[in-house]
Design a protein around this nucleic acid. Structure first.
Lengths: 73, 73
DNA sequence: ATCCAACCCGAAGTTTAACTTCGTTAATAC
DNA sequence: GTATTAACGAAGTTAAACTTCGGGTTGGAT
């Protein structure tokens, strides 16, 4: 239905909020700009593979958690 | 310990084998070359976001399944 | 009311990961 | 011996990911 990028972005936004950090703090941890984090959360683009790993590490989560969407098997 | 790319590649290789198709057949379904599938399975690089989605679709799996590794929480 | 923090949202430019295209090698099976 | 499947390198191309500007909005302090 929705793109993966959109769903991933929303999922990231929620997990980051739950973790209690700002886009800027996540950006620093992942070594990206705030704008990039914003773009990723809005589904403008997905992160490249290396940054997927860094994002999961920053939030202290396994990568698969970032792809755990509602309504999915 | 191992890179995400390596673990992802191995996971993909297993899931593809379980699904019973060749690299070439997956490549056709995803609109990539066989060499690219080979590179991804060997962890040379990870797929871009759009192709992540296509790979999961081709194997009729949710994306998160591709990141379900052994020994992980 | 205004300052500030956090974030949204384009547009235009840059970088480099992802991808392709060659070619070679090797194992298995028929 | 020849298909099939896949590993593996190197060199070149493409476009997704990322940056850098800019301006705009919201909500909560002071």
């Amino acid at each position: 239905m929705n793109h993966l990028k959109i769903r991933f972005g929303k999922r990231l936004q929620k997990l980051r909020a739950d973790y209690g950090i700002t886009q800027e703090e996540l950006a620093n941890a992942v070594e990206l700009t705030v704008e990039s984090i914003s773009n990723i959360e809005r589904g403008v683009y997905g992160p490249k593979f290396d940054n997927l790993e860094k994002i999961a590490a920053a939030l202290q989560l396994p990568v698969k958690e970032l792809f755990e969407f509602d309504n999915e098997t």
